[in-house]
Computed example of a mutant assay.
Amino acid sequence: MTLRSITLGTGQHRLQTSALGYGAMSLAGAYGAITEADSISLLEHVAQREVTFLDTANIYGDGASERILGTFLRHRRSEFVLASKVGIEKGAGVGKRRARGDAGYIKEQIDQSLRRLGTDHLDLYYLHRVDPDTPIEESVGALGELVTAGKVRTIGLSEATGEEIARGHAVHPITAVQSEWSIFARDVETHVLPTCARLGIGFVPYSPVGRGLLTDSFESEALPADDIRQNFPWFMPQNLPHNAALVTRVRDIAARLELPTAGLALAWLYQRAAALGVEISPIPGTRTAAHWDQLQRGVDVELPDAALTELNGLAAEVSGDRSFDPRWVSGGREGLLPRR
């Protein structure tokens, strides 16, 4: 599988990387257990598929994801574009953590992340969530100081609103914005993506296959009790049967086009991004090599107009919001969530 390159951002703050990245939250057990040996094996497989963009965060498994990536990257750090995040304090679990973006915290956490990752710099460092108690200007200013210090090459924001992105970009150039975006979750198209297009900021969609919903392998009755998805409205008992029926429609479209459903979901993203004028590198996460190959099949597929029309109408039919707390994501703070 030959994987093309893309450029996030513009000017001296641009970052060249693969058109598809790996989201390493899965290595911390969020969607089920995986051993460190299996994690390393999976990362080797992803690297063999010419993926050079690896994304993690200090909060994933309380540093476990970063440590595993650090092991994998030993003696080969220069082969990869490495991104991590700061801005969520450890709490009692999903929905019980808080955003923290003050300058002191950011400068403290970078050194811990670099130590776990076994490197002296990150290629991209995101503010994981916007702190409601800290002006975005302070958070971005601190990230910018890390660039000056040589600890970070470029900076990004995650789940920031269009207005927050513009304010942050005025302090220091933002290279990439990361937010959830998929066939089922499209609120970023209203304000966030137009802002990125206008300012020349790249976009990194996380959960591009709807946390596993938009795949051929998802089985609603097999969701483990400790799976992180149990906390998200799409997967709750009052919403999941309806959403699973929508997934069946997506699978039918994929079957007609002889694509894996996950590959179809990625192909839709690339075409939608091109229509909106943004450069993207999605970061799906998986625990199996076979699932990765299904995803990657969608990178350079052009979907027919009829399929795009069918897929474009599905988000309005999804039951439940994409987040357990609308304030936790950009669409909620922009008044786009909740729908129902």
Rank of each mutant, 00 (worst) to 15 (best):
A275E: 14
F203K: 04
P282T: 12
Q238T: 01
H191R: 02
I283Q: 09
L276I: 00
G200C: 09
R167H: 04
H242L: 02
G263M: 12
H242G: 00
P260G: 14
L240D: 04
V204K: 14
R186P: 00
T286D: 09
T261I: 10
T190A: 02
V204I: 15
W181A: 04
L269R: 09
A262Q: 12
L259W: 14
A255R: 15
A160S: 07
R211W: 15
D226I: 01
T288M: 01
R272N: 10
L266H: 14
A273Y: 06
I280E: 11
H169I: 05
I165H: 07
V209E: 14
A254D: 15
E189Q: 13
I228K: 03
T161V: 00
A245P: 05
P173Q: 09
P282C: 15
A274Q: 06
G285D: 08
I201V: 15
L259E: 10
R211P: 08
P282V: 15
P237A: 11
E189A: 07
L264A: 14
A170G: 07
A176I: 03
G202I: 07
P205F: 13
D252G: 07
A255P: 02
I165A: 02
A244F: 01
Q178G: 11
D252L: 02
A185W: 00
R167T: 02
D227Y: 09
V209D: 12
R167Q: 11
L193F: 03
A170Q: 06
S179H: 09
Q230D: 05
F203G: 13
S220C: 04
A254I: 07
A176Y: 13
L264C: 14
V192F: 01
R198L: 04
A254E: 08
P284Q: 15
S281N: 10
I280K: 11
Q178R: 11
S182L: 01
I283D: 13
L199H: 02
F203W: 07
G277P: 03
W268T: 05
A160R: 04
T175A: 09
F235R: 05
H191P: 00
I174M: 11
L266G: 14
I174P: 09
T215D: 15
R249G: 01
R251M: 03
R256F: 05
A267K: 11
P194L: 03
V250E: 05
P237C: 06
A245L: 08
E163A: 02
Q178C: 08
A275G: 03
G277D: 01
P284N: 13
A262M: 13
G285M: 04
W268M: 10
V171R: 14
S207D: 10
I183A: 04
R272G: 07
G285W: 04
V250F: 04
L246Q: 06
L269Q: 15
T161C: 03
T195N: 01
Y270E: 06
A225I: 02
H242A: 06
V192N: 02
C196L: 05
